[in-house]
Design a protein around this nucleic acid. Structure first.
Lengths: 300, 300
DNA sequence: CCCCATAGTCCACATATGTAGACGATAGGT
DNA sequence: ACCTATCGTCTACATATGTGGACTATGGGG
């Protein structure tokens, strides 16, 4: 036997709770004739009068009262079914595995991860910091964050630029006191330079108005690790070039100051890499959108 | 927000329990395309994939599993709602108020009422015997049973013939011994007659083969009450004419015997009267059907 | 490796359901 | 007693849903 039309239960319960077909129609924004028709057909199919109604009175029959109790139970379960799916879609959950270079992790993500974790209690973040090349897909990562000076090559991965920041020239106040502050980029040739890479001997500076100048400071030390460079600069060994986010804290504390404030040693781009967007989990999408700055950064 | 199509819950649960759209279609005798279409629309509306399926595999997603639990709960409640109404329809209950003449009550209904009461424990029978004219509708009766010789006049009431029985001529064996048994209806003119009504002086007899004869017995007594007539006949006062059901018991006990056994003094019809059948309660309908002999007369 | 049987999907068309509005019933107010 | 506002019902028509069958996908067997 075919199941009765379950939508009729809904209309029946709404009619009873509204106390009339007209009121139920108003509440549901559908014509009262729809309700009248569906209730009549439900009664025909069940072979029982559920509602005694005239143009001015409305009451449940004994059968209708029995029916209503179970019908309402059915609707409660149906709404629970719908809500549990919708809320599951609304609140991301599960594991999100990210990989990033150590500096990007330390100076960019480290502050954001707790906020993401606080905003999405059901997301389990797995942060893998590494300076080696990582094959995103092959090694099972959902997301990768990379900071780079030159544009990344094309690939099957989707690229989403998270940040573009200037690279500052910085030194300790003690160093500046001892050797004076360079007045122009050309003056850098008379100063000790703490290099970030063996081949980064010549620094290319660009003014805020777009003027470009190159100068080669005196090589004092080379380290390809930002914290080592920061500590060397604070130790008055010389000048160094670092992205603004990496030296922001030392500047705030007064351990370092900007040198040639109107100039930057280029820019660094931080990019989010992810596999194809199709079939992306809500949890992954939520992290992507957070890092993209599209979500309010509120911690609960 | 409009409620989702609740019929889709039913199809979804059937698909999950069947393990495939095809199997669910076979179980429900509907095309698999219907199920495919409805499930797809349900998923679109919920914004979630509930079932992962290919042409050869079928599994619930996490969301689908959560949804299924509540959906099945909803269907259990919906079936309970349907069943409680259908079972209520199946077993008649409530009060049925009948009215009948005193003889019809005593000689016809008195035996049946206990049987009806036994068959339908939830029916509360109210038997009102009266020899006065009763207005069925005006006085709030569900049913009336009337015995009559001539056809009842047309009315707004529905008539249903319950019984057609012959009227027997009876006398006590003592009377027959003292005055001899009439050999032909014409011999009645030499016998004492116990009349049932003042104007019923001439008895019209009809043979089993349809021959009609009229004869006027000697008026001995008149009573319009059957038990009084039965007792008078037993007291050897004369012959009387009574419906077979009324005198059946006295005949069985030997207190009375049939006179002119191949002849009857006409027939009496017992008719059930009821208001319009529309909106008839199941309890009333059950009594009607029982009295009509359409139901098995089983006592629990 | 190829073929076959059965799964799920899609679409043009058939059918069930939803709707607007007219109509009769009725209760309350004048 | 009459009129009006609102109720529920009914019907012709519009729209959503159900269906049959063609098509693609796929897994198992030969």
């Amino acid at each position: 036997m075919r199941m009765m039309n379950l939508n009729d239960l809904y209309l029946f319960v709404q009619a009873v709770e509204g106390g009339s077909f007209s009121e139920a129609g108003r509440r549901l924004s559908i014509p009262k004739s729809t309700i009248s028709k569906r209730i009549a057909e439900l009664e025909t199919e069940l072979g029982a009068r559920l509602i005694h109604r005239t143009s001015r009175s409305f009451s449940l029959s004994d059968a209708g009262r029995d029916f209503f109790n179970h019908a309402r139970g059915a609707l409660i379960e149906a709404e629970a079914a719908e809500n549990i799916v919708r809320s599951r879609m609304a609140e991301p959950s599960g594991t999100v595995r990210l990989t990033a270079s150590i500096p990007a992790t330390q100076f960019y993500l480290a502050d954001f991860l707790p906020v993401i974790a606080g905003t999405y209690p059901k997301i389990n973040l797995e942060m893998h910091a590494s300076d080696r090349f990582v094959d995103l897909v092959q090694e099972g990562y959902d997301l990768a964050i990379r900071s780079h000076f030159a544009p990344l090559p094309d690939s099957d991965l989707i690229q989403k630029q998270l940040m573009l920041e200037p690279i500052f020239v910085v030194a300790s106040p003690g160093y500046i006191s001892a050797r004076g502050a360079p007045a122009t980029p050309h003056d850098l040739i008379n100063h000790f330079g703490l290099l970030t890479a063996p081949g980064a001997e010549t620094w290319h500076l660009v003014s805020d108005t777009g003027v470009a100048v190159a100068a080669k400071p005196i090589r004092r030390m080379m380290a390809n690790e930002s914290i080592a460079l920061i500590k060397a600069a604070i130790a008055e060994l010389g000048l160094t070039c670092l992205p603004s986010s990496i030296c922001a804290s030392a500047i705030r504390s007064g351990d370092l100051v900007r040198v040639l404030p109107g100039w930057s040693a280029g820019t660094v781009t931080t990019t989010l890499l992810m596999p194809h967007r199709r079939g992306q989990l809500p949890s992954v999408r939520a992290v992507v959108e957070f890092l993209s700055g599209q979500l309010p950064r509120s911690v609960n």
